[in-house]
């Protein structure tokens, strides 16, 4: 797994200036029954931007663990660690995807999957990542929008 922390940090900074009052902060998110109904931002998720986060090694890098048949032609090296995601939108709602992306460990305490929108509770997080989320609130909404396109 090759990560590009410096580039990632830059992407994070670029977004840091766009935090608005209506954005829900990581510590304020409440996961209820495996779902988060309220979007994290006012701005609707964009599936095309979501695909960029989904596949980007410096971003969500979801493809590192999850196979997606429809991306086979355009992206190499789909992972085998997570659930294949073809048809996943038939199994979960946007609110459930939101909860899983924010912090999958509330439902699956032993999972390898990172919490993509959490800033606390980490052990020895490296300085440049300490107190930061892996994805921004908008990126979470964008990834959810992309996941919702994965219907059978």
């Amino acid at each position: 797994m090759k990560l590009y922390p410096a580039l990632f940090a830059l992407a994070g900074l670029a977004y840091a200036g766009t935090v608005t009052a209506s954005e829900i902060a990581p510590d304020d998110v409440k996961i209820v029954d495996g779902a988060v109904e309220q979007p994290l931002t006012d701005s609707p998720g964009d599936p095309e931007r979501g695909l960029v986060s989904f596949t980007g090694r410096k971003a969500g890098n979801c493809l590192a663990c999850h196979y997606v048949e429809s991306l086979q032609d355009d992206y190499q090296f789909h992972g085998e660690v997570g659930t294949p995601l073809d048809g996943i939108a038939d199994a979960y709602t946007a609110a459930e995807f939101r909860a899983k992306l924010i912090n999958p460990k509330t439902e699956l305490p032993d999972t390898i999957m990172p919490a993509f929108y959490r800033t606390s509770g980490f052990n020895r997080a490296a300085g440049k990542f300490d107190g930061k989320t892996i994805l921004t609130a908008q990126e979470i909404e964008d990834v959810i929008a992309y996941l919702m396109t994965l219907k059978d």
Binding site: M1, K2, R57, N61, L63, A64, C65, Q76, F77, H78, G79, E80, V81, K105, I112, P114, A115, F122, N123, R124, A125, A126, F129, D130, K132, I134
Partner: peptide, 22 residues
């Protein structure tokens, strides 16, 4: 450990033989 919040065991006990990306 870390922001990705993984233990050695997650990759090397639970998932050896699997691919993470390449």
């Amino acid at each position: 450990y870390g922001q990705l919040d993984m233990a050695c065991s997650h990759c090397h006990e639970d998932n050896y033989g699997n691919y993470i990306r390449a």
